[in-house]
Design a protein around this nucleic acid. Structure first.
Length: 264
DNA sequence: ATGTCCCTTCACAAGGGA
């Protein structure tokens, strides 16, 4: 099985590139973030023509997550138990069982700045996610993938000194992310296709991509059996090149056979 | 570290968010 996660920064604006990428990469399951469309406005027919079933959870202008699958899409859930709002619920998580694995696509709140109410919202959101994942992990193989808006380590940004006083690198954010892993999820490290840094996001501004001033914030967390079945994982930086890219690159993961924690 | 992109609206320009 091949699966992927990608923050597309508007599925409407990215549709031609998304369809090309699906055709060329041929993942079985895709976790999408920042689709920026209401659920019923997702281009389901276009991806169905490539063999994908869609589950989309959107709210229009902002946020929006979706799952695409060629291997089934069962027990779809929008959001998670205890998910905080800002103040209302936001379309930031969707999960379903595909090919015997529960996949959750997550778009973690940005936080804006450590003094902003959005930052405490981000921490509360991650804490509630951790709690909600415990029963999902007990139920069987699990993949939680998406845009976490946290760089787990100093090496995950091009220059940590630039981020002094900023979100994405603070201790509470990193602790909240570590707490999610702490329930028994493993980080699936993705290799870079070029250079030493598997960054997944580069700001559109100031030629950041071409200077490789990026961040590793799109992460794949997996249950032990899924992690043990990984044969390869890479950041597809080629998808960040050229005209009209998203500011994020996809992360692609290959699995050999069924995960050893497969049940049923 | 602020050089872009995307979305929306008291819409054809400006603001918000990332």
């Amino acid at each position: 099985m091949r699966f992927a996660t990608w923050n597309v920064n508007s599925v409407k604006a990215r549709l031609p590139r998304l369809l090309d990428w699906l055709t060329g990469t041929a993942p079985d399951v895709v976790c999408l973030q920042e689709t920026k469309v209401a659920g019923d406005a997702f281009p389901e027919q276009e991806v169905a023509a490539l063999g994908y079933t869609t589950a989309a959870y959107g709210q229009g202008r902002w946020n929006g997550v979706a799952l695409l699958s060629k291997v089934g899409l069962d027990d779809v859930r929008h959001g998670f138990t205890g998910q905080p709002g800002f103040p209302d619920p936001e379309a930031r998580a969707i999960s379903a069982v595909c090919g015997g694995i529960r996949f959750m696509s997550v778009y973690v709140p940005n936080g804006r700045s450590p003094e902003d109410p959005h930052y405490s919202y981000k921490l509360a959101w991650l804490s509630a996610l951790r709690d909600a994942l415990i029963p999902d992990l007990a139920a069987g193989p699990l993949v939680v993938a998406g845009d976490w808006n946290v760089a787990p380590d100093d090496a995950d940004v091009w220059d940590v000194s630039v981020f002094a006083g900023s979100t994405h690198v603070t201790v509470p954010e990193r602790d909240a992310l570590a707490a999610v892993r702490g329930i028994g999820l493993a980080d699936v490290p993705a290799r870079a296709l070029k250079g030493d840094h598997p960054y997944t996001y580069w700001d559109y501004r100031a030629g950041m991509f071409h200077q490789n001033k990026g961040m590793r914030i799109d992460l794949v967390y997996a249950s032990a059996g899924v992690a043990a079945a990984v044969t390869d994982a890479y950041v597809d930086r080629d998808a960040r090149k050229g005209k009209g890219p998203s500011d994020h690159a996809p992360v692609v993961v290959d699995l050999s056979g069924l995960p050893s924690d497969h049940v049923g």
